[in-house]
Write a protein that binds this DNA or RNA. Structure first.
Lengths: 208, 208
DNA sequence: TAGATTGTTAATCGATTAACAATC
DNA sequence: TAGATTGTTAATCGATTAACAATC
């Protein structure tokens, strides 16, 4: 990657991917930025600008080939190859995500569940047994783990996150309501702060 | 509300609220924008600009009173009064959120669970019984419901959302991977598109 | 070829940061 | 009073939109 691509652009890519997938399912083979812009409620200009950050995928006078563009965006997002995912913290949310991720979501494969609570050890969710944190280091050594989902209680989040990155995992999908500020750098974190999302809804409800 | 406050500002408010809450817990009574900016990793200027969209909460030479500012932001977010919440769709995610919301999260009270599947009727989660969708209209008539959490399968989402708003609920926390485009206007929607969030993480992992 | 639509440059708009007078 | 720090205006930066030549 040469020039830095803005966060705003990146955050729109999954939505393009989703719409293109739906178009494919509807048997639509080509689409213009104008047509897509109307479906997505954004400007055609923005679509073309966004896509041209990654390359010229269209053709003048024709538009974009839906399947090809869908595929290209998949590659951009890195979901053309399966990434192995583990869940650390099998509480409510962790449990739900374990079921949510099986069968595999396009590009992601759940391969492990961990929890500090020994009472949960051996419990099976979606065909995967919960392991204790004692087994974590060995597991990550023997298995290629690309992404860790962090769904432990708030107070444990920082320590567990440090353990995750210490074992060589460099991507965390963080559901704990904390801003992880890890000692190890070059770790990517995506926060899903549900309470904050709910508060934004509250604001908009009370101020529409 | 007079002048329109930008989405970017609003989306930062819950984070301020969270930091101020933590400061209170640590017994810190006042804070300057500079100090807070260092803790939050943003500029002091942004903090002052953001807050001044809503009023002058600080004092020159002193800074901000933590408890007072926390309280004010709570009011801004509309979480000073309890809002009644229901969950529609008691699958994995709905189930997890039901447990997540009890005991009450600051400002939100879970008061109902609904699912179209008759097999789930009467099942109790967090002390609340699941009701069938037949009972939905009557329930919303008898109870003040402020927010509906939409956690039904993708293909049902649009119809169920229409039913929600038809029964007078004007705020939806949407977990279905669909852009709700409802016939009724003045409905506020906050999307939590988990798959898209995970894809963003994937992108960042593959392009760091 | 003529029409359609891209890729890309230029213009606009909005959000962030810097600066500083006001004031506690 | 002097120092600190706000509220707010001005400057900068970045993102979105518009325009249009290139080209299929």
């Amino acid at each position: 990657m040469d020039k830095k691509i803005s966060k705003a652009v990146i955050s729109r890519m999954p939505r393009y991917y989703r719409y293109l997938g739906a178009l494919m399912q509807n048997g639509i083979e080509r689409i213009s930025s104008k047509d897509l812009s109307e479906r997505m409620n954004i400007t055609a200009s923005q679509i073309r600008q966004d896509l041209n950050n990654f390359g010229g995928f269209g053709q003048q006078g024709y538009g974009y080939n839906v399947a090809m563009l869908h595929d290209e965006i998949g590659k951009i997002l890195g979901i053309d190859n399966t990434q192995n995912v583990i869940i650390v913290g099998v509480g409510n949310i962790g449990h739900a995500l374990a079921r949510f991720l099986v069968p595999d979501i396009n590009g992601f494969h759940l391969c492990g569940l961990f929890d500090a609570n020994p009472a949960l050890k051996g419990m099976e969710i979606s065909g995967i047994k919960v392991q204790s944190m004692d087994e974590f280091a060995a597991f990550t050594k023997e298995n290629q783990v690309d992404i860790a989902i962090l769904t432990v209680p708030h107070d444990d989040a920082k320590d567990v996150a440090e353990e995750i990155v210490a074992n060589g995992i460099n991507a965390i999908w963080n559901f704990a309501l904390i801003d992880l500020n890890l000692s190890k750098k070059d770790v990517v974190i995506e926060n899903v702060h549900l309470v904050e999302s709910l508060m934004r809804l509250s604001y908009n409800r009370n101020n529409q």
